[in-house]
Design a protein around this nucleic acid. Structure first.
Lengths: 343, 343
DNA sequence: TTGTACGCGTTATCAG
DNA sequence: CTGATAACGCGTACAA
């Protein structure tokens, strides 16, 4: 078994004496082929170690059975888990996934162009900027299936995601119910506004004043970014007793900051995160956080994309699948000045 | 701009009056095309929103400019960071990456088959079982470029990775030098033996007896798995004063276990991890760990794969690129019964 | 400088 | 049941 090109249908045809077309049909399990022919052909294919050429197939069928998956940095375990689950879900449905990361709009369009050159049948995307989605709407208007992995309303796009607004509202309300009145927030202000809008909404509903200085946007997606943002937040707001973080990464960074400052969590500072990653659940002080079911999300997104890809070609109107986020209360949140949570 | 198929070279040819082949050459910047023709053609391509069909191109050139990337679960941030960096490195070199995860040998071969169907030009792989690599050697013998992301010696494969044996030896030696004599280990025993072999080797070199009961293999790649394995380890070994974990995930799980048992780290139990993930550096008790430079690794792997893909076709003999791992000493390791590390 | 013809490996169409 | 033949979109001769 030396070099040589890959065996093709023609090689099998030559070896068995049948025509390429018969070979093609036999290998795809057509019933119009005789038992004898099928067995002979399958045996020959086996011997030659034949591997179907998806590229050639794609050219003639104009379906690549490939989708593009575009996410931001994979530093956050939660989207990472979703991406992994998505790949498996798509594989189970017979689709391969081309993968790319983008942290800027330019990288995002470059990646999408790459996907289109490769004729992907659809796109799973966690967009960089949740508020400017024209390029995705344009794709959709050309009947190109796109499923966005963010639970944003009224985007004109198919989407599945957690109800970040509601979940963040719940998380903030939890802190307010505990008696906190000066609550800070760490998270994106412009690109991904849903979580902080939920934070704002909770203040409105419960009649709590909210100063813009109480919201700080970390630079990047690391614990260190959370740490630095927490430092800024604390400097600006002396009386702070609680923080809501849009990501457990930030929350853990904030807890680290508290430790270095000699502040106890939750006695001196309550911390609530988002994503419910394992690092929070196993942290020294366990982290109160919003759980979103990544597996369900991945499955729903895969199903939705599949329906669009294999359905008729004027795409149906876009639908939004909103999954609930559930607040998991642990040690890091309590009444101000107190240890342990009391309902 | 309604539905309709994608524009092709023929469409541009029709619109401009040139032949397809002139269009093809012009778009690829051939100098044999007149200035006027080029400009007219580029303008038409722009207007039609022409996107080259990589599939068709691939069929005729028999190069897909696509590589497969196969990793295990992305629950561990370190391999995840490497995977992300690899995708970016490959993109910078004009390659797209098909991505899959595999946690069993069966899934691994299934994924590789998928890659081959899609005619990937090469493969980046973190194999499930570091000791059975025949299937990869077989690919290589057919001149298919494969770069393994594990620094294992004498595999007959191209590989780039950290010197896990040496780094684990160093980490264990650190504990021995601190005065520990009963050191447990958490990590894979069979599939990925390098780290525990380094652990063993340190015992041999420093004349320390080593009981098989001191090594426990966690089930899975989570903190919870580390937690459970630590429980088993402790139950089997009462006098234990230190643990070496083959992954920071396991180490953090072990620290969590210590906390729940009322043991202080490092006074009652020293813990050394591996991977130097941010969660360890920002943990309540910061984690001593082995740093491996993921960015350098990704770059080296990308370069190596590129050389194989674009070099001549009897593949050159395989080479191994070994990167050093560096022990980063933090709070979690000290002399037995003591807080803080003294050299 | 540009056009024509052919082939890449497969599926689809239409005969036989 | 099976076999020619024509696409699919592009690159590479070679010819004009």
């Amino acid at each position: 078994m030396t070099a040589g090109r890959k065996p093709t249908l023609a090689d099998i045809a030559a070896k068995t004496g049948y025509g390429v077309n018969t070979v093609s049909l036999a290998l795809r399990g057509s019933t119009r082929i005789s038992q004898a022919a099928r067995e002979m052909i399958e045996k020959a294919a086996e011997e030659l170690d034949y591997i179907p050429n998806a590229t050639a197939k794609s050219l003639v069928t104009s379906r690549s059975h490939t989708v593009g998956m575009l996410v931001e940095y994979l530093t956050n375990p939660q989207p990472t888990a979703v991406a992994t689950a998505l790949q498996r879900e798509m594989a189970a449905r017979g689709y391969s996934v081309l993968f790319a990361t983008s942290s800027t709009p330019e990288q995002e369009t470059a990646a999408i162009d790459m996907f289109r050159r490769h004729n992907v049948d659809g796109l799973l995307i966690y967009p960089v900027d949740h508020t400017s989605l024209d390029h995705l709407r344009r794709l959709r208007s050309r009947n190109f299936p796109v499923v966005m992995l963010v639970g944003a309303r009224d985007t004109g796009l198919d989407a599945v995601g957690v109800d970040e607004f509601q979940a963040s509202y719940d998380a903030t309300t939890h802190l307010i119910a505990l008696g906190h009145t000066r609550i800070g927030a760490l998270g994106p202000l412009r690109d991904k506004p849903l979580k902080l809008e939920g934070f704002r909404h909770a203040h409105r509903v419960h009649g709590l004043a909210l100063d813009e200085a109480l919201m700080v946007e970390p630079v990047g997606f690391s614990m260190e970014a959370g740490f630095a943002a927490m430092e800024t937040l604390a400097a600006r707001n002396p009386g702070l007793t609680a923080v809501f973080a849009s990501s457990d990464m930030f929350a853990l960074g904030a807890m680290r900051w508290a430790k270095l400052k000699g502040l106890r969590v939750p006695e001196d500072l309550s911390v609530v995160g988002y994503d419910n990653i394992e690092f929070g659940a196993f942290s020294h002080t366990t982290l109160t956080s919003v759980r979103n079911d990544g597996a369900t999300l991945a499955k729903a997104a895969a199903d939705k994309l599949l329906a669009l890809m294999e359905g008729g070609k004027p795409l149906p109107p876009p639908t939004l699948t909103l999954l609930p986020g559930e607040l998991v209360i642990r040690e890091s949140s309590s009444r101000p000045g107190q240890k342990g949570w009391v309902a």
